[in-house]
Design a protein around this nucleic acid. Structure first.
Length: 878
RNA sequence: GGGCGCGUAGCUCAGCGGAAGAGCACUCGGCUUACACCCGAGCGGUCGCAGGUUCGAACCCUGCCGCGCCCA
């Protein structure tokens, strides 16, 4: 009886109302200091940095996904006794912020150039204070167990110092250089972009064929960017192309401009494309630039930084590039020089992925670069020699494909929001790189440009820990343990973090220079049909809405449950709802347990029942499996396993069996202990995934402070009992068969019917008579028991003969149909087994255990057939 | 054009050499004293196609068809 154990259900509301509880619960966790790391701790460390979100950003489903995975890892390690640090923060998103602030300025009728650098930067800080960092509050709603006391921003003083320090080192080592190169230019931002900030897309343009020169000395070339002809300095043909041999070395007049340009022979020209002759604009096309270098051609720039035609001395000067494209074509047409036009013509054009999204313009420009070859090689080697693991391993080729073929990285940006390049120029063109503690020579001027945001993000795993100073944090938490991020941005900051980490920390030796031991890659969140989410297709979702509707835990559970390593995660509202339902199920099961006096504080029974032994054994297996899967970043399988255990085993079977055991004084206390013990462990195992719900339930169950800082479940010394498990499985099989019979015979679920179970003792299930009766609502046979139907159920322990009084005639046709289905299944089984066993090569070559398995399956099938046929024969004719 | 990957139940996906699985959806029956956000029972698949290896192939190999992504 429950007399000695006060019911604690009173502590637990009948329903879980996440919206009312989550925020307060999170605040308590933060105030209790659970998430604050201690660098002086003796515990082993588990640290990771959040891949810094953009200061302009707000939480989207991809963040929710990534943060859920990280939080699962972090919360588990915390419970396992690690000194955990999950460090939050943001990057300053130079281009995105510029786009925002400049748009606001334009609306006010001014511009950054008008207001000047200092005022602009001030204005931008103000913008950040007012609007930046929405995502940080949203992280609180998600339950991220981050250490807010260590929050960082890439423009913080300390992090800026790190930027200056590494720039100086790289510069002094010759790994940063300034050069005039063909770059991706954004006329709208008036800045260069790096290769990874440009995305090539197929667009409909035009292909215009133009005749240069006249008569026998003329050549036809084709282009999609007609306006660039103003900057042509040559025509190139393949050296073996006999059509043009007579022209090579001669000069042809460039239409509209009047300049004489050379015809050059170059191996890289594809003679089969178009006319086999190409116009060469060295200052405005990467391929042409290379041709220009090989043939020492002039490289006049014909466009200014905002994409307007300039310095051609033609009427087109001052026109925008797209305007000029039309005007130049029309002018050429007027001269009869247009030979052909294809429109629309599908071709690939680079577009800015940040800020403006406009087509980028290849442009010759003086910029700062990082010489990546040695750094990228080190980044590749770290994975090659196993110092850094990539999970899942299948994505390693993607990593190598990138770092082994990396181009030099353009790090200067013609922007003001960011870290200004620490190079100063003297009056006579001298140049000096000034370190953080150094003073520039008087009268010298600093480079105008700022650094790419990723230059500072690349330092994130150590700049946030205090580098370049040798801080306790750095000593304790670097290298970080794992970087969880999407495979789609492996090239963005992950590669850069690796390069800079290995470089900056090289004094620590190869093992300890790495920024993280493991790169765990996840996929992208897609809609429920597997389609990419995007604003334009209208299928993107707001995670906050789902959190409002179903609670944070439901969202986290749904996301984690879909997280197979490195693959995309389709998710729809259905999945979130199903996860909410799971939480409710767990809630109700715990309430049931509490109502019945369950407690983990009770001693496990000295003489556990089969059901006790079974569920404790299963708990052990599930715990071990969960551990193994989480160690391998297999979130989906881990969560799925816990879902199955909770719902299909604990709730569907153990709780139902427990109801019987609780009615019996001999087993009641043991059941309370087992229920309490299993739920205690289960709630801990689930806590990293659904922190809020488990906290409420666990506190209710244990009366203790918080599951956040509870110990991760370990071996309780209970091993799986094979015999007890077999008996429980037999009970399940028997119960299911009787339920099936009841359903087919249309006996209402609520109606209790009398039945006799013959052979139960012989099958080893004597102790489960009451349980079976309870689970299928059977009454013991009374004095007047007169069965109207009977059937046999073959179990591992023996055959049980079920006699049932259905209080009337049975539906013979339904029973016959049921038996026929069973017979067909058994017959198929028998045939398959016979076929295998009839093959001498199978018996000879297959492993003995496989052959034995088939033999016993055959025997079982044969027995089933005999039984079913006998039963069919005994049925009255219908 | 080069590389990587994927085609398994209506949908989304596990399984990757020895009895075809899950969630959701669907059908039928149930307010059975934790839970109708639930319970019980069910329906549903020549595992893209064609060859090959093997005693045995959804799983390994080859080719083809279809679909993604990354890099040119």
């Amino acid at each position: 009886m429950t007399d000695t154990l006060p019911s604690r259900t009173a502590d637990l509301p009948a329903q879980w109302n996440p919206g009312e509880v989550e925020a307060g619960m999170y605040q308590r966790w933060v105030e209790a200091g659970y998430f604050t790391a201690d660098a002086s701790s003796d515990k082993p460390s588990f640290s990771n940095v959040i891949p810094p979100p953009n200061v302009t950003g707000s939480l989207h489903i991809g963040h929710a996904f990534e943060h859920t995975l990280i939080d699962v890892l972090v919360r588990r390690r915390r419970m396992q006794g690690y000194e955990t640090l999950w460090l939050p923060g943001m990057d300053h998103a130079s281009i995105a912020v510029h786009a925002l602030v400049e748009r606001a300025l334009a609306a006010e009728g001014t511009s950054r150039r008008e207001m000047g650098r200092e005022a602009f930067v001030e204005r931008t800080w103000q913008w950040k204070a007012e609007h930046g960092g929405k995502i940080l509050d949203q992280m609180r709603r998600l339950g991220d167990s981050v250490d807010w006391s260590r929050e960082r921003f890439t423009m913080d003083e300390g992090l800026s110092r790190a930027v200056g320090t590494i720039f100086k080192r790289l510069y002094d080592d010759g790994l940063i250089y300034r050069a005039e190169r063909m770059v991706n230019w954004s006329p709208e931002m008036r800045s260069v972009l790096s290769d990874v900030e440009v995305e090539h897309r197929e667009v409909e343009g035009e292909l215009v064929s133009i005749r240069y020169g006249d008569g026998d000395d003329s050549v036809v070339v084709a282009t999609t960017r007609v306006e660039t002809m103003l900057g042509d300095t040559a025509i190139a043909v393949h050296p073996d192309d006999e059509r043009y041999t007579h022209l090579v070395g001669r000069e042809i007049e460039l239409p509209l401009v009047g300049r004489m340009i050379k015809v050059v022979a170059d191996e890289h020209v594809d003679p089969s494309f178009g006319t086999g002759a190409v116009k060469v604009t060295p200052a405005h096309d990467p391929n042409d630039f290379e041709i220009g270098r090989r043939h020492d051609l002039p490289m006049p720039s014909i466009m200014d930084e905002s994409g307007r035609i300039a310095n051609t001395g033609t009427e087109f000067d001052g026109m925008d590039r797209f305007e000029a494209r039309v005007a130049v074509r029309e002018a050429l047409a007027a001269q009869g020089r247009i030979v052909a036009e294809k429109r629309p013509y599908l071709h690939s054009v680079g577009h800015a992925t940040r800020g403006s999204k406009e087509p980028i313009e290849p442009r010759l420009s003086l910029q700062w670069f990082v010489k990546v070859a040695p750094l990228a090689k080190a980044a590749g080697d770290a994975v090659r020699d196993g110092r850094v693991a990539v999970h899942p391993k299948e994505l390693e080729p993607r990593w190598f494909g990138w770092v082994d073929n990396m181009h030099d990285w353009t790090i200067s940006r013609q922007l003001w929001w960011g870290h200004r390049i620490p190079v100063w120029y003297g009056p006579d063109g001298e140049m000096v790189c000034v370190g953080p503690d150094e003073e520039p020579p008087a009268g010298w001027t600093q480079d105008e440009d700022v650094l790419d945001t990723w230059f500072s993000s690349a330092l994130w795993p150590f700049s946030t820990l205090g580098w370049p100073d040798e801080t306790p944090d750095l000593a304790k938490f670097y290298p970080t343990s794992v970087l969880v991020t999407g495979y789609d941005i492996l090239f963005f900051w992950v590669a850069r973090m690796m390069m800079f980490g290995l470089y900056a920390m090289q004094d620590r030796g190869p093992e300890n220079a790495i920024p993280f031991h493991t790169i765990a890659l996840h996929g992208m969140v897609r809609d429920q049909f597997g389609k990419k989410m995007s604003k334009s297709s209208g299928n993107s979702v707001d995670p906050l809405e789902w959190m409002d509707r179903y609670g944070t835990d439901a969202l986290r559970f749904a996301l984690a449950r879909g997280a197979n390593p490195g693959t995309d995660v389709p998710i729809g509202e259905d999945a979130v709802q199903a996860s909410r339902n799971f939480g409710t199920k767990l809630w109700n099961a715990t309430r049931f347990a509490l109502t019945n006096g369950a407690s983990p504080a009770l001693p496990l029974p000295a003489a556990p029942t089969d059901a006790d032994r079974w569920i404790l054994g299963r708990l052990r297996e599930v715990r071990e499996q969960t551990d193994a899967l989480l160690e391998d970043f297999q979130f989906a399988k881990a969560v799925e396993g816990l879902y199955h255990f909770t719902w299909d085993e604990l709730c569907d079977w153990y709780v139902e069996l427990a109801k019987v055991q609780l009615r019996d004084e001999a087993t009641a206390d043991g059941t309370r202990a087992v229920l309490g013990h299993v739920l205690d462990a289960l709630l801990r195992l689930l806590h990293p995934v659904i922190p809020f719900l488990t906290e409420a339930l666990w506190q209710g169950l244990t009366g203790r402070e918080s599951v956040v800082v509870a110990d991760w479940p370990v071996d309780a010394g209970v091993s799986t009992d094979a015999a007890a498990t077999a008996r429980v499985l037999d009970v399940q099989r028997l119960v299911t068969e009787v339920r099936r019979f009841r359903t087919e015979q249309r006996v209402p679920d609520s109606r209790r019917i009398a039945a006799r179970l013959v052979g139960l003792d012989e099958a080893g299930l004597g102790a489960h008579r009451a349980a079976v009766g309870s689970l299928v609502r059977l009454d013991p046979p009374g004095a007047q028991f007169a069965p109207t139907a009977s059937f046999e159920v073959g179990l591992a322990g023996g055959t049980v003969h079920v006699e049932i009084d259905t209080s009337g005639a049975i539906d013979v046709a339904a029973e016959r149909a049921r038996l026929a289905r069973d017979l067909a299944a058994a017959q198929k089984e028998l045939d398959q087994a016979d076929k295998k066993l009839g093959n001498p090569k199978f018996v000879e070559k297959a492993p003995a255990d496989v052959v034995d398995g088939i033999r016993s399956r055959r025997a079982a099938a044969a027995a089933d057939i005999d039984r079913i046929e006998a039963r069919l024969a005994a049925l009255p004719a219908s």
